[in-house]
Write a protein that binds this DNA or RNA. Structure first.
Lengths: 408, 408
DNA sequence: CTGAAAGCGCTAACAA
DNA sequence: TTGTTAGCGCTTTCAG
C-alpha cells in the first residue's frame, strides 16, 4: 500500500499529480475528462490514481461549477406506499439524467419541513421537489423560488404559489365519479370518510371554486359534495365523517358511524389508509359488503384485490406523479442553466398516455391489479408556473353494488 | 430588492461582509456561529444577511471540514414496502443526529450499484448503508471499507466482508419456526415458495453451516430444510418451488404446483410478494385455506390482517432493521472522528426490547396488526465488524390449521 | 474583538 | 501539450 501524506485523508489531486510526476493541471485534465492530455501523461496519471485509489472530490467540483447534480425531495413519509412509489419514480427519472437524490421526511411537521428546506438549500441542490405539508409552507417555498431555485410541488397544490410548477391528481373529479358511481347504483345515503371533514363548512361554501386547488383529501371531499349536489342530494353533516390518517382510528370512526346511522348504504373513503380501516371495520361489524353497504377506496394498492370483496377504488397514477414532477424539474433546471428564459403564459394539453379503457370495466384479477396506469395530463400555465393535472380513474370491482332492498 | 453582484448567483459571505461593513472573517464568525463577535457587529452582519437573504454554502463548509453531514443509503427498491420502512427508520435516526440522506435504488442491477457507490463516494458521504445486491458487491464495498468509510450492510449479509458491520434478521430460525409450526399441526407435505429455490442443491449440502450468512430468501430456505429434516422429512425437490420476485409469477407458480401435486397441504412463502401471489392463487384455485391447505407468509404487512383468512406470518422488524443500521453507522462515524480506535473482538448480547409475548398467541385484530415489534438483537464480533442479528417472530393467525382429514 | 491571509480540492484562464 | 496561477465560499490561524 503506497504511502499517503496528510494523515489518512483520501488522496487529493495533488498527491496523484506528484505520484505521476506531472502538474495538478494535467492530472486534473485526465482525471476530470476535460481539456487535452498526451497519451503518455494520461497513462502516468491513471496509473498513479489507481495506485492511490483516488476518487475525485465532488464537493470541490460542485463548488466551482455551482451545481451539485443532486435534487432534493421532501415528502411527509416515504414509509407510506403512495410516496414510496412516487419517490421511486423520481429517482428513476433524475438518475437517468445523472442526478442523485437527497430525501427528507417531514411527518407533516412544519418545523421539520422548515429544516429540510433549509438544509437542502445549504447543500445547494440543483432543484427541489416538495409535497408541502400545509398552505403555511408557501412563504418558505416562495423564498426559494424567488432565489431562482427550480422547484416543483408534488401531490399538494399551493394556489398562492402560481409561479411554481405543481403536479397533482384531478382529485375532485375522481371523487365525483366515484360517488357518481354509487349514485347510479341507487344509493342515497352515501357517507364519506375523510381527513378533511373538519373543513366541510368552508368547502361547502366554496364548492363551486376549483376543488383541485385544495390538498388531496379536501379536494376529494369537494368532489363528493359536488356529486351529491348534482344528484339532488343535500350533503348531511352526519354523513361526513372525520378520521385522522390512521387505520385504527378510521375503523373506529366507521364503527361509530354505523351504530349512529344504520341507514347508510355506501361509504367513500378519501385515501387508502382510511379505506383499510373501513374494510377492517366492516369485517368486524358483520355488515356484508356490498350487500349491506358499498365501499369505495382511493388509491389502488396491492391489497385491494386480495381482500374479499375486491375493493372498488379510484386508481391514481402514483409513480407517474413522481416521474412527471421529476421531468418538470429537470426541464426547469435545464432552462435555468441556459440563462433562465421563461415560458410565460404557456397553456397546453399534454397527452402522456394512450386512450383509457372505459371506466367501470369489471376486472378479471390480473387486469385489475394495481399497475402503472397511463395517465393523461392537463397542463395549464398560470403566470410562470404550470399546473400539471394527472388523471386518475375509477376501477370498479366487487365492493360496490345496489343498496339493500333494491330488486336487482 | 438589494442589488446583487456577480450575476444572479446566491450571495456569498463576502457580499454580506461588504454590506455589513466588516471583514469576511467577522461575518463568518457570526454567520457560522463560531469564534467571538461583538454585539454591534453581530447585529450589522445579521441584518445584512437578512437583507440579502443569505444562506451559507454547505459545500464550502464541507470541503473545509471534511465531512458532509450526509449518509448514503443504497437499496434495491424503495418502492418495496420492506425497504420503504427500513429507509424511513434510517432517516429518522440519522436526522436526529443532524445528518441528511442520499438515497439510491439499484433494482439489483450490479452496474447501478457500482455507480451508486461511486457517486456516494465522490459526494463524500460520511457513511454508507448498503443492501448489497449480490456477493459480487463485496469487492467494491471492500474498497470503501479499506478507505476507511464507515459502512453498514443492511438485510443482506456478506460473509466475505467480516470487517464491516452487518444488520440482518435471523431468517433461518424464523423460517424454521414457521415450518415447525406447520409440522406440529400435522403437515407432512409442506412446500416452500422461494426466489432461492434454484440454490437448493447448494443449500442442502451446506445446510449445517450458518444459514443466516446467505441472502434472506436463501437463509429462509435453509430454515425450511432444517425444519423438515428435524421432523424426519426428506425435502423433495418437487416441493421446493421457484418463483421470481413478482406477484403474478408467484401466483402462477403456485397454481402449477397445486395442479402437479394436489397432495400438498401447506405452503411456506419466503417473502411478502410471493405470499401475496400465493393468496391470489389460492383464491383463484378454489382451495379453501386453511381447510385444504395452510399458508405462511414472511413479513407482516397491513394486508395480511385484511384478507380472509388472516395470514399467519413471520413478522420481521423492518423499521428496527433500518434504525439499528443507522445507529451502528453513526457510532462508526463517531469513532472515526475521534481517531479511529477500533473495538476489536467485541462479542456481546444486546437486548433492545423487553420480553416477547409467547409466539403463537392468537391476535384480536388490533394486537396482531403490523406494528413495530420490539426485536431482540444478538451482536457477534467478527474481526472488526459486528453482525447484529435482529429477531423476527411467528405470528399465528387463521391461515394455518391441521391438514385435511385430521380429526380435530 | 477584528482583519489579513492561507488553504480545503478542484477547474479554468492564460502563458509558456 | 503542459504548467502556473487565481479562485469557487468558507473556516481558521495569526497578528493587530
Amino acid at each position: 500500500m503506497p504511502h499517503r501524506e496528510r494523515g489518512s485523508n483520501p488522496p487529493s489531486i495533488v498527491e496523484v499529480a506528484r505520484e505521476a510526476g506531472v502538474s495538478t493541471a494535467t492530472a486534473g485534465r485526465v482525471l476530470g475528462g476535460y481539456g487535452q492530455a498526451s497519451p503518455a501523461s494520461r497513462a502516468k496519471v491513471e496509473d498513479a490514481a489507481r495506485r492511490l485509489s483516488y476518487r475525485p472530490n465532488g464537493l470541490a467540483r460542485s463548488l466551482i461549477h455551482g451545481s451539485t447534480e443532486t435534487v432534493g425531495v421532501i415528502v411527509t413519509d416515504v414509509g407510506n406506499s403512495f410516496f414510496a412509489n412516487a419517490v421511486r419514480a423520481v429517482t428513476d427519472v433524475v438518475r437517468a439524467a445523472g442526478y442523485e437524490m437527497l430525501l427528507a421526511n417531514t411527518d407533516s411537521d412544519p418545523e421539520a419541513e422548515r429544516r429540510a428546506i433549509q438544509v437542502m438549500w445549504e447543500k445547494r441542490v440543483d432543484g427541489l421537489i416538495v409535497a408541502p405539508q400545509s398552505p403555511d409552507s408557501a412563504d418558505r417555498l416562495r423564498a426559494l423560488a424567488d432565489a431562482g431555485l427550480p422547484l416543483v410541488l408534488l401531490d399538494r397544490p399551493l394556489p398562492t404559489l402560481p409561479q411554481v410548477d405543481q403536479v397533482i391528481v384531478n382529485n375532485t373529479s375522481c371523487a365525483r365519479s366515484a360517488v357518481g358511481h354509487l349514485v347510479r347504483l341507487g344509493h342515497r345515503r352515501i357517507a364519506v370518510l375523510s381527513e378533511a371533514a373538519e373543513d366541510f363548512p368552508r368547502l361547502r361554501d366554496a364548492a363551486s371554486a376549483d376543488g383541485d386547488a385544495e390538498r388531496p383529501s379536501a379536494a376529494r371531499l369537494v368532489g363528493y359534495l359536488a356529486a351529491m349536489r348534482r344528484a339532488g342530494l343535500t350533503p348531511e353533516p352526519g354523513l361526513i365523517v372525520h378520521s385522522p390518517y390512521d387505520r385504527d382510528a378510521a375503523a373506529h370512526a366507521v364503527l361509530r358511524l354505523l351504530r349512529r346511522d344504520p341507514g347508510v348504504t355506501a361509504l367513500f373513503c378519501t385515501d387508502n389508509v382510511l379505506a383499510s380501516g373501513a374494510v377492517a371495520a366492516l369485517q368486524r361489524s358483520g355488515r356484508a359488503c356490498p350487500d349491506d353497504i358499498s365501499l369505495v377506496g382511493f388509491d389502488d394498492q396491492e391489497w385491494t384485490t386480495l381482500v374479499r370483496p375486491r375493493l372498488t377504488v379510484v386508481r391514481q397514477p402514483n409513480r407517474e406523479l413522481g416521474s412527471t414532477a421529476a421531468e418538470r424539474l429537470l426541464e426547469r433546471i435545464r432552462e435555468r442553466r441556459e440563462g433562465g428564459g421563461s415560458t410565460r403564459g404557456t397553456e397546453r394539453e399534454a397527452e402522456t398516455g394512450g386512450t383509457e379503457p372505459a371506466a367501470g370495466a369489471r376486472g378479471t384479477g390480473k387486469g385489475t391489479g394495481p399497475g402503472s396506469p397511463r395517465a393523461t395530463a392537463t397542463a395549464t400555465g398560470t403566470e410562470d408556473g404550470q399546473r400539471l393535472v394527472l388523471r386518475g380513474r375509477l376501477v370498479t370491482r366487487d365492493s360496490t353494488g345496489p343498496p339493500p332492498g333494491t330488486g336487482s
